[in-house]
Design a protein around this nucleic acid. Sequence first.
DNA 1: TATGAATGAGCGTTCATTCAT
DNA 2: CATGAATGAACGCTCATTCAT
Lengths: 196, 196, 196, 196
Amino acid sequence: MTDSPSSPAATARRPGKRERLVAAAAQLLHQQGTERTTLADIAKVADVPVGNVYYYFKTKDDIIAAVIEAHTRQITTTLASIDTEHRSPKSRLKALVREFAAQSEIVAQYGCPFGSLCSELDKRAEEPIPAVAALMRLPIEWAEKQFRSLGRPDAHDLALDLMAAYEGSALLANTMRDPGILSEAALRVDRWIDAL
Amino acid sequence: MTDSPSSPAATARRPGKRERLVAAAAQLLHQQGTERTTLADIAKVADVPVGNVYYYFKTKDDIIAAVIEAHTRQITTTLASIDTEHRSPKSRLKALVREFAAQSEIVAQYGCPFGSLCSELDKRAEEPIPAVAALMRLPIEWAEKQFRSLGRPDAHDLALDLMAAYEGSALLANTMRDPGILSEAALRVDRWIDAL
Amino acid sequence: MTDSPSSPAATARRPGKRERLVAAAAQLLHQQGTERTTLADIAKVADVPVGNVYYYFKTKDDIIAAVIEAHTRQITTTLASIDTEHRSPKSRLKALVREFAAQSEIVAQYGCPFGSLCSELDKRAEEPIPAVAALMRLPIEWAEKQFRSLGRPDAHDLALDLMAAYEGSALLANTMRDPGILSEAALRVDRWIDAL
Amino acid sequence: MTDSPSSPAATARRPGKRERLVAAAAQLLHQQGTERTTLADIAKVADVPVGNVYYYFKTKDDIIAAVIEAHTRQITTTLASIDTEHRSPKSRLKALVREFAAQSEIVAQYGCPFGSLCSELDKRAEEPIPAVAALMRLPIEWAEKQFRSLGRPDAHDLALDLMAAYEGSALLANTMRDPGILSEAALRVDRWIDAL
DNA sequence: TATGAATGAGCGTTCATTCAT
DNA sequence: CATGAATGAACGCTCATTCAT
């Protein structure tokens, strides 16, 4: 019986505890915010004893950093897969918009996972954390590239506007607890892209 | 001894302890966030003894509510004064945009005072707080009225887009610590209004 | 009924809670050492709720600093009272030795309160703490002055030897749990002073 | 396969894991004290996996006991080698004093390794630990023998005074961070021995 | 034997809130 | 009205010790 390549190792031990912790932290940070989420909360959701958390992460900030990293990776993956599955810049941009709109329900409940994290972490440190800014920079730069492919000289501004429209609509949708705000904004952005 | 009824007392104590508390809270909530701001912080900035805070506000949530109320009042005042000073819907909308852009420096440092408050308070309670939503609803409804005056049947959507553009740009400006993101977005919105 | 001058104030409140905390800390630091003494220990002995400790002392280090200060004050007082009650340098020095010898029982159990504190605190910080060194410097300088009054040009060395003899004997007495080691060493120092 | 019985194993592992642990513990106990030194610290300095420590030592107290034993052995060795290399009691005593003075730099930094250990361990247990007391008793008894050889009936007291002078000076040197205090005290003791 | 991982009790500290005067 | 003091629950974090392999 060969070891399936997806399983981490032959050792039956360690069923991705670190991953579970990061996933639990990401979920709780999104739902409760950084300050209201305790390490005990994270440990409980991940089903890991509290003391054991510190074997994987030296401080709470380290867990937060891991969550940011996980988000960054997810964004990168999503953008790469859009690049693979779509050829034209317009269809790529619209795919991103669709991706955003697909989360409208959860965003209306808890806000944009990236946006609210950026907002909160800004208050945690004096200096801005580069890794956090990357959460916004990555999709902006990607969108800019698409707009440039469309021959737009104002590609950077368009990318900023696109991202701002999403983050702003996410905030409004969350504040009003109305997913429609986000999904309808997405529709308008979609038409705007078509009209470019 | 002719103590005028409007003056607080014969004792030379500064007027408006409550006002000072609310102002201090508003400032600190903006700069440090709700969770990282302690009542002791607020009391110190307001120069009020800690124990005395509870004479004016039963709980921390009450102070936050007072801050929201103060913000609401300020928004109302601003919109009213725009109404007074400008006649045409377009110049009114552009006046609001100018108002937003004027804060770009402080917004880049601490985020939009209203937006980040909405974002944070969403995580503080299960149920959304109507007073918080009003912070967004008020300018949206006002803008909607202006767009309607311009004869736009999609006035509501335009108002949402306007506010989303501001809040989204504020978030990006804060995340990147770049006031230019906000002020340049304002320029584009300005031209967009002109072009309507 | 006049307010007795020794009572702190007319307010019946605050029966020297801070003093009780410092006294409890001094006792426990002596008996258990700095590291093994918890704030809960101190609070319990002082009969003060744990949370309340932080009203008086911001950190554990602050309590330790207060204990050092209390010790410093006690040393100063003792030396001053010896100065008052004795005229000749020799009888003063012998009074100090008597003071040391009087504590032989408790020193044999827990070590010299000053010496063991110096020893422990040395390991707590990179830099030496001046206030700690004063615990040793004060009696040394005082003794030096007495030896100088006796016309000894090597007054400083004699003072160091005197203090070293006490601290060394205290350590031996504590290690062997034998108060006799300290009290008999004191007798020999006494004769040594007489013979000068 | 002729694995000589004295060589640890065929695997090229470094010899003396246990020895390395004791050496690391001795060093860290001296520099950081017993309470501030963690098993992880010791394991890291000894370059031994944490989990493996417990194969050699059941508890932290066991490692401490091993350090005491190592110190005891070292003292015994030193005294024996002095006995070998010196014939007269006086030159032997002076050799010990020289031994003490040679460590003045490190003692000024971290205290006497034996003295501070005695001081700390006194606070760790209710009952005094005989093995700890031996750290002091051994050199005292050795010195007593030398003084007795010199025909001194007060040999025991002289030995106590000698050791007390060293330990006391070590404490002062450490507290003031001044190696000179110890080395100059050693000079005076040297002259005192000569004058006997 | 060897080792990375696990565990839980406890530590120093914070803070919203209450109380006595 | 005003205020310094009091309170306790909880938080982030540490660490000696144990466990599974």
